[in-house]
Design a protein around this nucleic acid. Structure first.
Lengths: 202, 202
DNA sequence: AACAAATTTGCGTAGCACGCAAGTTTCTGG
DNA sequence: CCAGAAACTTGCGTGCTACGCAAATTTGTT
């Protein structure tokens, strides 16, 4: 990787993290773009070369990492059934911060809590969803524009992840993330069978 | 319904439609907030009392209508199985413009095509998703904060609708909307079984 | 070392969201 | 029908922001 690219990536990440840090400290509305730029030692104009809003900058650090879900998925053994592979790929994404990653929690809470960020959060999940769809299509060897399946599965998985994240954040008493993710994915993979109040007949 | 409320609603809809009309004519970036306000005969400041951006205004007309999905769902006969009721509720939402509603097509195409609007589009679908989750929870008689199921199903359905819409818009040759929706919903309700290349056993 | 390509930066501009404090319309109860 | 209250509209002012453009700087290539 060339120097240029490394520098660019570093700047991008630095800006994103600075944005997150300042926003968690003072609240998003009390952070100005200039300050984020200053924090990194870069001109305000440059900030806008990387991101077109502070909201985007805040979400970027998450998206960038999760965008690799495509590769993560393709790296799974080909023998694995599709749903299993996808589930494992998702879990790998979130296994870095197994549980006690305060920073990560803060960031997600920030994103979901602040209404100005929720929109950008959804937008960012959209990007991840595209990546995932590509990965699925590639693994299945089908054209994602022709066949509904990949996008459908990507949307479903992405939705499940989103819901699981939200639940994990707000649940009282606390629950663990990984099991919640697994449970959510298992349910959608089973077609969300309506929970029976009585025991189902065998 | 009191006069005040009627006027307010009328203003809101007028603003939203004016925004859509102007945006389809000239492209979003060549529409200024002042013009939208002028078109409706209202002060620019008032526009911002209703919407906090042109993007929001454009999506609003769609969201407002679809927000009724909660009532639509609750109005379905209680005897109907959940998935069936949800599917029918969704179809009802989109049956008004069965197929040839040019205005509607233009608006959706505008929203999905323009990158500035895609974010707002996702945001708006998020609102619909919440409504749907509430409806499902209410119909099931469970607490949506406690039980994952309603949000999970809402996210899944909402994702399927989104994908179906996208496919319907871009597919060549053209496909019909309703069958596409039904197919997408059927697939997610079945847990997206991996399509077999060979015939499945039994 | 020298040239080409990409990136940063400052400047200028147009636009926008929103708080606030009148002014205006609608609603309510007597 | 008529006050007084409540809701909504409007104009103004302000600070922030996104982005085009062109010059300066940095990085890559031969």
């Amino acid at each position: 990787m060339t120097l240029r690219e490394r520098k660019k990536l570093a700047a991008r990440e630095a800006l994103s993290w600075a944005a997150v840090r300042l926003a968690t400290e003072r609240g998003l509305e009390h952070v100005r773009v200039d300050e984020i730029a200053a924090e990194v030692g870069v001109s305000p104009r440059t900030f806008n070369n990387y991101f077109s809003s502070k909201e985007e900058a805040i979400c970027a650090s998450g998206v960038d990492r999760q965008t690799r879900i495509r590769e993560t998925l393709l790296a799974r053994p080909a023998s694995e059934p599709l749903w299993e592979a996808v589930t494992n790929a998702v879990l790998e994404q979130y296994s870095g911060h197994g549980e006690p990653d305060r920073d990560y929690v803060m960031r997600v809470r920030l994103m979901i809590g602040n209404s100005a960020l929720r929109g950008e959060f959804l937008k960012s999940h959209g990007k991840v969803e595209s990546m995932l769809a590509e990965g699925i299509a590639q693994r299945m060897g089908v054209d994602p524009e022709q066949d509904l399946y990949p996008k459908l599965m990507a949307a479903t998985v992405s939705g499940a992840v989103r819901v699981a994240l939200g639940h994990w954040l707000h649940a009282t008493p606390k629950v663990e993330l990984a099991p919640t993710l697994v449970e959510a994915l298992k349910q959608v993979a089973a077609g969300l069978p309506p929970p029976e109040k009585e025991f189902p007949v065998s």
